[in-house]
């Protein structure tokens, strides 16, 4: 345990196994994810990258047949410890989903939802402040400031996804998990979100699952390649894309598998 803290790791996974019923979805994954970096998980469909991402904030708890073994430590604390309340964990580890999923409420209420339930604001002024700064960080403030009371579902796809990012960062998490955040967006919206991810790196540790290798190359500093539930290779993004060690990584990158 000690040695994991010696590195600059925000999140450390040790011997993680995930089962869906009888299906062994994640096999013995060990990985250290650093603070204030963007880490990309890549791999073919069904390789377990999204599953692994969801174990980091225990979203898998909502699925009855899912079972997790091994340790996942955030700042040295095991998040699967019986004493840990997933509610508190998820406030610390935010998540953005594949499809933009704004609540059927106003833009303001969407962003204020997290701070309200976690009691982060003492009064209305503070709440306004949190909403404004989150929207600013998500690069949505200029577009949304005049229509904060309009429903979040009325925004365009790209705006909706940035709203979801603003919603996630409003609870001031330490880690931000993104599950293919651009897969439902057009290229222009994708570019905006990617730009945003790069900025978010200043304040958070960002983990992003992506199908697009180009996207991984553009936004991440570290890349992990998953294949059939195994973590095949993990390292600097440049190295993975230019000089992978494992033949499977190379075949995937050059388009022979996946």
């Amino acid at each position: 345990m000690k040695e994991t803290n010696m590195t600059n790791a925000k999140i450390s996974a040790r011997a993680v196994q995930v089962y869906y019923g009888d299906n062994h979805a994640i096999k013995d994954v060990n990985v250290d994810i650093e603070d204030k970096t963007v880490t990309a998980f890549i791999g073919p469909s069904g390789c377990g990258k999204s599953t692994f991402l969801r174990t980091i904030n225990r979203m898998n708890d909502t699925i009855d047949i899912c079972r997790v073994e091994g340790d996942i430590l955030i700042d040295g604390e095991d998040i699967y410890d019986a004493k840990v309340d997933p509610v508190q964990l998820r406030a610390k580890v935010g998540m953005v989903f594949q499809k933009p999923n704004p609540f059927p409420k106003s833009i303001y209420d969407n962003v204020a939802y997290g701070p309200k339930i976690h009691g982060l604001a003492r009064n209305k002024a503070e709440l306004d402040q949190i909403v404004e700064s989150s929207l600013r960080k998500a690069a949505l403030w200029n577009e949304a400031k005049d229509r904060l009371n309009a429903p979040g579902t009325g925004l365009s796809g790209g705006q909706q996804q940035r709203l979801c990012i603003a919603r996630a960062i409003a609870t001031s998490p330490e880690v931000l998990l993104m599950d293919e955040p651009c897969s439902a967006l057009d290229p222009i919206a994708t570019a905006q979100v990617e730009e945003l991810i790069d900025e978010l790196r200043q304040s958070f540790s960002v983990v992003i699952v992506t199908h697009s290798m180009q996207q991984a190359a553009r936004v991440s500093q570290k890349t992990a390649f998953f294949h059939l539930g195994n973590l095949v290779e993990f390292g600097e993004t440049d190295k993975i894309f230019t000089n992978p060690e494992d033949p499977r990584t190379e075949s995937y990158i050059s388009g022979r598998i996946g």
């Binding site: 955030i74 700042d75 604390e77 998040i79 410890d81 004493k83 840990v84 309340d85 508190q88 964990l89 610390k92 982060l120 402040q129 949190i130 700064s133 001031s172 304040s203």
Partner: peptide, 13 residues
Amino acid sequence: MTDTPKTSLLTVD
């Protein structure tokens, strides 16, 4: 906003 004291996950507030 981030001035809330660092809390441990192991204690439930």
